[in-house]
């Protein structure tokens, strides 16, 4: 097997994920409608019934990240869960290629599948901000924290998917983890407004926290990427998601071995 085979199978896995996304077009349309509404409702409640310009943009940055992590984690979790339930997961292991090719393909497919809903929230936010006469400063540097969020989320997804291979019915874990990140990830309340120990824990452990903090610094504070005003700076913004991804890869590999030992790949 050559690199070409690996690349082909990797692209194949992404293609399958996207075809499945399109086959669930109605579900996607509903999500693209409800998540922006949820964002506007959050701002409305926080603004005591008004869409306050000073809340629209900061909350939007958090909500885009939260929507992304929610979608990616859930999509990749349910892709494993569904394949285990139906039994087709075992077929995906009958390949001469290393399973990492399939696993990474699923992660990328989930990340791409998460984009339309996150983009819908962004579009709604952009509209709301501009209608309320607010500025929407766009900088290319924001792509760095966005990439950091995607990489960190992939690490978290790997941990959850590894657990799914062994324990199967753990729907509550992705649900609770995303709910915790909504609170502790600085999505609604900035980390700087939290107690120090909470902010420290969030910056260490929550995949989206440094990214959301950096985006706020850049978009609202006007900070350059190399001199972020809050948080632990560019170094940690880049290092944290890589560490989470490495932990995810190691844990997934171990849990996959456990699943093969216990015979849980095809058992539900």
């Amino acid at each position: 097997m050559t690199t070409t085979h690996y690349a082909g199978a990797f692209g194949n896995e992404i293609g399958k994920g996207l075809r499945q996304l399109l086959s669930g077009g109605r579900e996607l349309a509903i999500q693209m409608l409800t998540f922006p509404v949820f964002y506007l409702l959050v701002v409305l409640f926080m603004g005591r019934g008004r869409l306050l310009p000073e809340l629209l943009l900061p909350t939007l940055l958090g909500m885009v990240a939260l929507t992304f992590i929610h979608e990616q984690v859930n999509r990749v979790f349910w892709s494993y869960q569904g394949d285990i339930q139906s039994g087709v997961l075992e077929q995906t292991y009958l390949t001469p290629l290393p399973s990492v090719v399939v696993v990474l393909g699923r992660q990328v497919a989930a990340a791409v599948s998460a984009l339309p809903t996150a983009a819908a929230v962004l579009a709604a936010g952009y509209l709301a901000v501009t209608v309320n006469d607010g500025g929407f400063p766009v900088t290319a540097g924001v792509l760095v924290p966005l990439a950091a969020i995607a990489v960190g989320t992939a690490g978290l997804s790997l941990v959850i998917c590894g657990l799914t291979l062994v324990y199967q019915r753990i729907e509550i874990i992705p649900q609770v983890s995303v709910a915790v990140y909504a609170v502790a990830g600085g999505t609604l309340v900035p980390l700087t407004a939290m107690p120090d120990w909470t902010a420290t824990a969030a910056r260490l452990l929550v995949p989206i926290a440094p990214g959301v903090e950096a985006m706020r610094d850049m978009v609202i504070g006007g900070d350059p990427l190399t001199a972020l005003g809050s948080g632990w700076g560019l170094g940690w913004l880049l290092l944290q998601p890589i560490l989470i991804l490495v932990i995810g890869v190691v844990l997934f590999a171990r849990l996959e071995r456990v699943a093969k030992k216990r015979g849980t790949l095809g058992r539900y």
Partner: peptide, 21 residues
């Protein structure tokens, strides 16, 4: 087991599993 993806077409399934192999 289902062995193949029910949400995909017969053609898509065969291409998917062929590439996977």
């Amino acid at each position: 087991s289902r062995n193949v993806y029910w949400t995909l077409t017969a053609w898509q399934n065969l291409i998917y599993f062929g590439r996977l192999k």
